[in-house]
Design a protein around this nucleic acid. Structure first.
Lengths: 223, 223
DNA sequence: GTCTATACCCTGATAGAC
DNA sequence: GTCTATCAGGGTATAGAC
């Protein structure tokens, strides 16, 4: 079924950018329609509700991330560590190019709708897992450059934490200090792991929540 | 001037929790008023607009973070590395206690209003800087347990990235896999840095964006 | 300082012609 | 598939008595 118009695509791509920049709740359907140069009739022809558009946007972003970030980064180099660093480099360029107005493609959206839209939250969680699998794949290819018995899955989640946190800081502070420092330190982490004899002792690396956290004196009030 | 009522405080604390859980835009003043058991007249007596309440909330959250997180974590231990890890432990407990419904106290809020509320964004950026100063202070106390010439400021920003990213992942995935892995890997990073001879070579640790990024093939479309 | 009542706009969504 | 016109409801904010 060849589509005759691209209105649906236009709605998705403009909504993606607006949600990304200003969030879901802050973006009205009117704004989307105007910017996509279409009208109410078309909008609701394709999407029964605004929430349905959101779901389509999430899928679209996942596609773009694949073809424009992960794909090129993997083509660029075969070195496992450089591959994940290339993903970060792509994020960095994106921050700069858009003057820090765009954060993580799904990160802030995920946080925003985490409570109100369980289905979307789950969808995004699945995407996070995909990326983690992917990055873990890089680390698997690293073979014995990494210490034996290291938790590659955990290392992938660690890298994703750094990326998301670094983007957030860059966006809030509107500079690259935290981003560059984070990438530099991750790079050093890889180097340290590669050093012979880097991993001679200890054996505690709780990746799965095997038990409840040890009690802490830190006590957050009910704010 | 002794205040006769605590209405103002009630508004701030309930708004803080609601903004934290569901975001700013998603939270209506009606909802805040109801939950704080007050009415429109009182609300606008204390806060000319909803935005003014937001600013008060940010300041309040900063206070709580100081007294309930950083303070206790510092009293708990004098070991510099354990201090930052104690902050993470406090965040972890908080995630669990609230079933992952609450993320970073200011992180997601910052992302949400980053574009629409420049003044608030700047205020939060200032708080981030404060925390970084604080954490850098820990690393300064670490003295020669850290390699000479290491970028302690960068290390602090790195730690904050990990914390923010780990909280985000935990909230989206609704489990602690990424959080625990991130903390474990950060702990290992500290251990590796402490190892004698961990830092014998290389000299490239760009913290300040000294130059433009190297060109990359990764190309994000204009979505 | 707190209450009730209400203004008024913008939002997501619908109706129906073309 | 796209248009115009419109609705119902909830949003922030105001008015004025107490």
């Amino acid at each position: 079924m060849p589509r005759r118009t691209n209105t649906r695509e236009r709605l998705i791509t403009t909504a993606a950018e607006l949600f990304w920049r200003q969030g879901y709740a802050q973006t009205g359907v009117n704004e989307i329609m105007q910017q996509a140069k279409t009208t109410s009739g078309s909008f609701y022809h394709f999407f029964p509700t605004k929430d349905d558009l959101l779901l389509a946007v999430v899928d679209h972003v996942a596609d773009i991330l694949e073809t424009d970030v992960f794909g090129p980064s993997e083509e660029r180099t075969t070195d496992p560590f450089e591959r994940i660093l290339a993903v970060m480099e792509a994020s960095r360029r994106h921050l700069v190019e858009h003057d820090f107005s765009l954060g993580s493609p799904l990160g802030s959206l995920a946080a925003e709708i985490s409570e109100s839209h369980p289905a979307v939250r789950q969808r995004i969680a699945g995407l996070f897992e995909q990326w983690i699998d992917r990055i873990r794949g890089y680390f698997s290819e690293a073979g014995n450059r990494l210490p034996a018995g290291i938790d590659r899955d955990g290392l992938a989640r660690f890298a994703l934490s750094i990326l998301e946190g670094a983007i957030l800081q860059a966006r809030v502070e509107r500079n690259l200090a935290a981003f560059d420092a984070s990438v530099a330190e991750l790079r050093r982490h890889f180097q340290l792991l590669e050093q012979p004899g880097a991993f001679e002792r200890r054996r505690e690396t709780p990746t799965q929540p095997s038990a409840q956290p040890e009690t802490t004196t830190a006590d957050w009030r009910a704010w």
